[in-house]
Design a protein around this nucleic acid. Structure first.
Length: 273
DNA sequence: CTAACTCCCTGATAGC
DNA sequence: TGCTATCAGGGAGTTA
């Protein structure tokens, strides 16, 4: 499912193909989504020229030439493709944006958790609905002291804490699971119990893992595909995610799974304290 | 304020 | 074979 590295892979791909193309026609096939797609029809998109593609957490924003932007989020199963006409329509394709240069931007989502909407960015360059997002994990702002201070007084477990988008944005179940394994920290630990040193470890490992995943085009777990239809290759480097019952790659202890905040979490009780 | 729920949705898989 | 139950889960919303 798309987390930050997958969103960044999509961003890079879209940023190579979308800018300077104009929207020639909008087609909506499935109005009933997490947010309705029908407003796209009345948004006056025909004739608008697309600009650069930026990312905030797992959201992407494609600039429009009228100071608005197309905002998208991939939920769990969102896929976007840019293809020439002629490909048969797939079952869960919900919207097409026809583009100049004989291409179609296709918005697909089996579970309908994705978002595609027009937004109006504020002074910070992002629409108000993204105002509550926390720090970007690949910036200087995400550092040991930040994580340490943010976790003081927090009784929630460390896994839920680093998956909280209001604290740090873009880290979902896969990368939280892998980060805590690499950092040797149990997902069950109270956030408040983290030492500065453990915070530094979590921050450093998460950045390494996210950067490596971006390098490999993300993880294709279940539904994720890149814009060109290829799979990300990071899934092959996962140490513990989805490997419950397998031996720990570091110490051989059988990996356990617990449910935290409604999400399954795989970890090694031998390596993660 | 925090923490712990519920819900949205479909497809894959397990069990009977 | 065909049914039902369970799980996958981001984020918004609700409750205590």
């Amino acid at each position: 499912m798309p987390e930050l590295p997958e969103a960044e892979s999509i961003r890079r791909a879209l940023d190579r193909v979308l800018p300077k193309r104009s929207i020639t026609k909008v087609e909506i096939f499935s109005p009933a989504m997490r947010e309705p797609l029908t407003p796209l029809l009345a948004a006056g998109l025909e004739g608008r020229v697309l600009g650069s593609v930026r990312r905030r957490g797992r959201y992407l924003a494609v600039a429009l030439d009228d100071s608005r932007a197309l905002l998208m989020h991939f939920g769990m199963s969102g896929i976007v493709r840019v293809e020439p006409p002629g490909t048969p329509k797939r079952k869960h394709e919900h919207a097409f944006l026809h583009l100049s240069g004989n291409l179609i931007f296709k918005f697909e989502c089996a579970r309908r958790f994705s978002i595609l909407k027009v937004c109006t960015p504020g002074p910070d360059g992002w629409p108000p609905e993204l105002a509550g997002l926390g720090v970007e994990p690949l910036t200087e702002g995400f550092n040991a002291e930040f994580l340490f201070q943010a976790s003081r007084g927090r009784k929630t477990c460390v896994k839920n804490f680093i998956m909280d988008n209001r604290i740090v944005t873009g880290i979902g179940n896969i990368y939280a699971t892998e980060t805590l394994f690499a950092a040797g920290v149990s997902p069950l630990r109270e956030a408040d119990s983290l030492t500065r040193s453990e915070c530094r470890n979590i921050v450093d490992r998460s950045k390494e893992i996210l950067l490596r995943a971006i390098e490999l085009g993300g993880s294709s777990i279940s539904d994720f595909l890149n814009v060109d239809g290829t799979e990300g290759k990071f899934a092959q480097e996962l140490s513990v995610y989805g490997k419950s019952g397998h031996p720990c790659p570091r110490c051989g202890t059988v990996l356990e799974t617990v449910r935290l905040g409604g999400r399954s979490s795989c970890y090694c009780s031998g390596c993660q304290k």
